[in-house]
Nucleic acid binder design. Structure first.
Lengths: 180, 180
DNA sequence: CAGCTCATGTAAAAGGTTACATGATTCC
DNA sequence: GGAATCATGTAACCTTTTACATGAGCTG
């Protein structure tokens, strides 16, 4: 079976939900998947074109008065097959995050202690902000989609985000208190 | 001050250590920075060329018999200035890791439970392997470089790696036991 | 004598971001 | 009246990976 990149599979996956336009894909990405996947319009629209070319989805154009036309993409059975096949394949590349904060700290010898403290405090603020965002999304999913089959899995990914973020916050606190 | 990309700063930073050739940069990357930064030869050699062009480092070619010539790159004072300046700048992009495991789990509805379990077990194995690697590197740093000023910071980044990885492992265990 | 390590490098392709262009509606 | 939202899309650019090329010495 022909292979596509992960971005294509991510979009294919989102097309199984209510989100069926380029704009809606971007929205759900920024809201619900933001902690482990993000994507720009510069990828979304060309990828949707590819998906139609490959007959993984069909496009239906809805012209609403006033607003620009909306393209709705609906998965074909081939599209669903391709998605399911990808889901069954073992993971090839386990993620290694690129972390600019750690990169700077790695060369901390060339920085003043004051700047190091500032770096970690800023990082901690960002992590705190994220943690709160996850809780907000979690509540939104629990309130809105409690009978949706998807929500179980969405909550699992959020739990991951929360745990990782909490560990990172604890590292910040510990490092600021004891290690610099 | 002229801006370069993070890869350039990473290499600049490594050139402050004993590692001064393209090959040695790749080695330390794969060993000590691997948990938050990685890089390929396809980036290293062109970037080193750029660094010399920009007069951030000077190159000294050592021809050893038998082995191919070795290029040693030594930072200029301008190079050190550029590095220090970057270290002082606030972080622009806080990392968002792309996680294929979570992406697949997000669409878990289209996968069998059996495959979900396998996915998480494989991920856990990889995380366990990583955790062990961090401990090994930690020991190596403690034994070899205990009087090196850098080692303090290197251990801090390893502590981060360990904490994050441990949190991820705990999520795997919890999810496998209660949530699928 | 096969395979690994040391050592440098390039070219093509893939992947991704940013900036731009367009334009109506709705909210403050 | 200005800003945000809805909505689509492209082009240039930047970044990164992969595959290739070369070749000696050392290890089992």
């Amino acid at each position: 079976m022909k292979r596509y990149n992960d971005t294509t599979y991510a979009i294919l996956g989102i097309l199984t939900t209510e989100c069926k336009s380029g704009y809606a894909i971007k929205q759900i990405m920024d809201q619900s998947l933001n902690h482990f996947w993000k994507i720009s319009y510069g990828q979304i629209y060309p990828t949707l074109k590819l998906i139609v070319q490959e007959e993984l989805a069909e496009v239906r154009t809805l012209s609403s008065q006033g607003r620009p036309d909306k393209n709705e993409y609906h998965l074909t059975s081939k599209g669903i097959e391709v998605l399911k096949n990808w889901l069954e394949q073992p993971i090839e590349h386990f993620p290694i995050e690129r972390n600019e904060v750690l990169l700077k700290l790695f060369f901390g010898r060339y920085q003043t202690q004051e700047k190091q403290v500032f770096l970690l405090q800023t990082y901690k603020k960002e992590l705190d902000r994220r943690y709160q965002t996850y809780i907000t999304i979690e509540q939104a999913i629990i309130n809105q989609n409690y009978n949706d089959e998807d929500s179980k899995y969405w909550l699992l990914t959020l739990d991951y985000g929360k745990r990782i973020t909490k560990a990172a916050i604890e590292w910040c606190v510990f490092t600021l208190e004891n290690k610099l």
